[in-house]
Simulated scan of single mutants.
Amino acid sequence: MAFEYLNKTLAARQQASLYRQRIAFERVGPRFLLRNNTQYLNFASNDYLGLGEEPITGLENTLGASSSSLVTGYQSAHIALENYLKSKLNYQACLLFNSGFSANASVLKSLMNEANSEIFQDKLNHASLIDGGLAANATNTRFNHNDLKHLTRRLEKSKAQHKLIVSEGVFSMDGDSAPVAELEHIAKQHNAWLMIDDAHGFGVMGNHGLGSCDDIKPEILIITFGKACASSGAAVLCSQNVADYLLQFNRDYTYSTAMSPWLASATLSRLERLYCADEKRARLKDNIAYFKTLASNHNLALMPSNSAIQPLVLGDSESCLALSEYLKSNGIWLTPIRPPTVPHNTARLRITITAAHQAADIEQLINQLVDGLKLL
C-alpha cells in the first residue's frame, strides 16, 4: 500500500517517546504563559530581555509587503532597519529574511556552490546550518564541538580553494559559547572566511547587546529577531560584494514575499530599545547567576553554560517527559528537548532564564526540579 510507512514511522516515534505535538496557548510572555485558562511560570521562552511585553505604538506601515524584495516589496521601512543594523554592527550591507532558518540555509546553499569549495561546520550547529550545507555543492566537513585543534587539522588537510568556517555564537541547545576570536584567527591563518549565526547571542552579549561578535567581524554575520529582540525574522550582515551575489543567486530571498513593512518598523523600534537595555541585561545576568548558584547548592547537574540557556540533561526521553509533566502539574512550563533535536541519549530540559523572572520564580523552579527528580 502506498505511503504505509507514514503510520509505521509515526507509531515508532510514539513508542520511543519522541512524538511531537503543537500546543496552543492563550498568551505567552517572558515570565508567565496561559494555557486552558491556567497560568504557568514560563521557563521555555527565548525572549531573554522581556521586551515582548513592551507595547509598540505609532507604526503606520502596511502589514503586507505584497511582493518580493526584487519586485515592489522593498520599501522605506526595510531600508531604515537595514541602515540601523549596518551602522551598529559596522557592515557594508544587510539583507532581511523572514526567518533565521531561511537566512542560514539559503546563504550556505547559494554562496557555497562554486567548485573547489568546502564548508567546515561545528558538529552542534543548528539544523538550518546543516541543511544549508547539505544543499550546497561544496564539500561538507564537521569538526568536534568547539574543538579548535580538530578544526585546524581539518583545514590543514583541505585542498579547497574556497573555505568557510560556520559556527553558532551561542549554541541553542547547550547554551555554551563559541570561541569566536580564535575561530577568526584560525580562519585568517588558512585563508578561510568565517560565518557566525548569533541568534542567541545578539541582544544579550557584548557592548549594548551587539552580540558574540562585538569584538570581531566575521565575513558573514547572521542575527535573528525572534529571540532577545522579541520580534520575528532575520538579517544577514556582510560585504556589499557578498550581498550583490546573494541578490542574484539566493532563491529564498528572490522568490519570497519581503518581510512585512510593519514588522520591519516594529523590529527597528525593538532594536532601539534593545540597544539601550543595559539594565535588563544586568538583571538577566543576575538571574542566571542566581539560578546557577541554587542549582549547584542542590547538586543539579547542569551543562556548563553562562548564557540564558541552562540545559539539564537527563538522558532518556521518557524521564524528560515525566519531569516536564510533573513541573506542569506544579505551575511551571518547561519543554523537554529530545532527539533528533539533540544527540541520542542527551534528552534534556532546556531551561531558559529571562530578565523578567523574579528570585521567587527561580526558587520555585529549583525546588520543583529537586522534588521532581526524586520521583524519576
Rank of each mutant, 00 (worst) to 15 (best):
L247C: 15
S319W: 07
G132V: 03
P179M: 09
I186K: 03
K374G: 14
T354W: 02
T141A: 12
H78G: 01
T293G: 06
R142G: 07
R142L: 12
D176W: 11
S317M: 13
A360C: 07
N90A: 15
W193P: 01
D252E: 15
L321H: 01
D122H: 02
S177K: 07
I196S: 00
V180T: 03
L194M: 05
G50K: 08
N7K: 10
V313T: 03
I56K: 01
R348Y: 06
M303Q: 11
S128Q: 06
A230G: 11
N36T: 11
N144G: 05
Y5S: 04
S87G: 05
I220V: 15
V71P: 11
E272D: 11
V166D: 02
S296K: 11
C238Y: 12
N98W: 01
F97R: 08
P218T: 09
T293N: 09
H162W: 07
S17E: 12
I223T: 13
K280W: 10
A282H: 04
T335M: 10
A65G: 14
Q189G: 06
L111S: 03
S67H: 14
A24I: 08
A228S: 06
S110E: 03
E156W: 01
D244E: 15
L369C: 09
R154D: 00
P304A: 12
I56S: 10
S232E: 15
G175T: 15
T254N: 14
L375C: 14
T57L: 11
K227S: 12
Q364Y: 15
P30W: 05
I353M: 00
C229N: 12
A160L: 03
K163F: 02
C320T: 04
L376F: 04
M205E: 00
